[in-house]
Write a protein that binds this DNA or RNA. Structure first.
Lengths: 269, 269
DNA sequence: ACGAAAATGTATATTCAATAAACAGTATAT
DNA sequence: ATATACTGTTTATTGAATATACATTTTCGT
């Protein structure tokens, strides 16, 4: 729940409407009939539809229908569909964060963070379909950013470095999440189970990707690596873990470099 | 230009329509009047609109108008708007690749690759707004994948490792591209130039992000790092270079690990 | 208590986008 | 020449977002 949900504080006039809504910084109506609906209800209904049928299925009329109201009733609560999307994102971000463990390894904490983010995207496949319009501004989303920063609480990094690493990790999670999301989707769709296994166009690519025009891709297509047909125990999950360890290695190298620079923490600037 | 643009080869029946189009694997009409339009024309017009006014501005009618034809005429060339989007993506990917330099440092080649990808996204900000539905399948897009693989041509990596690294690099570029794209956009929009500089909601966030609920984010918001107000010569570009070097370090560590494992390249499997 | 004000949900209507279907004209193979 | 396979156009349908006007309900100032 947002801060004190009383104030229509002047100070927040300039925030985007939906952001103000998400912080509860909107004056509560005093007169008039009590609303039969509520923003949480609407958002929940919208998320349910999106989880099941994708973001494309979320139309104002469908959300309203699922609640037993008319389309226009939603506009008493939300200024526009875009507002609803912003609220959906923030509501989805309301996940329990793991408790802070004082002596945990930072690598493991980062792994947990990335893993959770990926799982989050698989749970809400529509999340990454909503275009990003700014840095996170809504309360639950910022909690997740805070969690990302928490993984570095004991590392000798300045603010910019920390932000860069959060960006690096969450960006990586986002990419992996998209890939896995697409795979889940393809599995559900069951694309042509007959002669063309999985979602693979391996056969066609083998004809199209010639060694002359694609000297480096060609062998990977031929061996089935590109379309992941021949995966000898190699799964996308492995790929993802692999990439993540590279990033963590990179961070570790950087930390070592910093240590080497100034071994004594109390040295002057 | 696609391969021999003659064949309506049976073998490609199962590819998505737009993919088949992009490879030119579609039978040329023999009877009837010559088309006054052409796919390249249509795609070019659509890209021009998207570059200028964003993907949202690309409607079939607007594209047709800009060419001086009716909306429906486009459907003689393209099956659906989605097809058009796929063709737009592939056409945008038709960029000149740098010549292969036999003795170039792999780190530098990867930097070039990532840089070019980022610049590409800034040039075509709409590119990342189109949802990914599968691995790249169209000719120009695959050329870029091939380029990514080329950066590793001299490294002792197997196919899976190479694909993982391409994914890592292109994913990173994609993320950075999105951030820069959004900044460019905000600059163009000139969000409220008066009291609230840039696209920043710093003032509001300083009020909202309390130290109790956001222990790790709070200091960054207060110092202006989060909203990048106080950037002391620190630009987003720096952030991006920084993250990339971490990834390259991570790759390098991995290569060293492999070397240590088997110092002699000719050792048995 | 009471009437104005404010707020609710609804009905109606507008705009715009995607695209299906039918049509009139045109070039080519037979 | 003529049937055929095309072309671009016209017309119409569908669905979504949302502006506007309405009837109804609640509560505050008196």
């Amino acid at each position: 729940m947002p801060n004190e949900d009383i104030g229509d504080d002047e100070a927040f006039r300039n925030l985007p409407n939906a952001v103000r809504l998400s912080w509860g910084k909107v004056k509560q109506p005093k007169r008039g009939p009590k609303g039969e609906l509520s923003i949480p209800q609407i958002v929940e209904a919208a998320i349910a539809i999106a989880d099941r049928d994708g973001l494309g299925a979320v139309s104002m009329s469908r959300v309203a229908q699922s609640l037993g109201f008319t389309t226009m009733s939603l506009y008493r609560y939300v200024d526009s569909k875009d507002d609803l999307l912003v609220l959906m994102m923030d509501a989805a971000c309301d996940i329990p964060l793991p408790p802070e463990r004082p002596d945990e390894d930072w690598r493991q904490e980062m792994r947990d963070y990335v893993n959770a983010t990926i799982q989050f995207i698989r749970d809400h496949p529509w999340f990454v379909d909503i275009p990003i319009t700014s840095v996170p501004l809504t309360p639950n989303h910022l909690r997740i950013v805070d969690w990302g920063l928490r993984t570095m609480r004991n590392l000798p990094l300045n603010g910019y470095e920390k932000m860069s690493f959060v960006l690096l990790l969450s960006g990586y999670a986002r990419n992996v999440g998209i890939v896995l999301r697409d795979m889940d989707r393809a599995l559900k769709a069951g694309t042509a189970p007959d002669s063309f296994s999985g979602r693979g166009y391996t056969k066609e690519l083998k004809l199209l990707v010639g060694p002359d025009r694609y000297p480096y891709l060609h062998p990977l297509v031929q061996s089935g690596v590109y379309t992941e047909e021949s995966a000898e125990g190699n799964t996308v999950g492995d790929d993802f873990l692999f990439g993540l360890e590279r990033i963590l290695d990179g961070i570790e190298v950087y930390l070592q470099g910093k240590q080497a620079e100034k071994p004594e923490p109390a040295s002057g600037k």
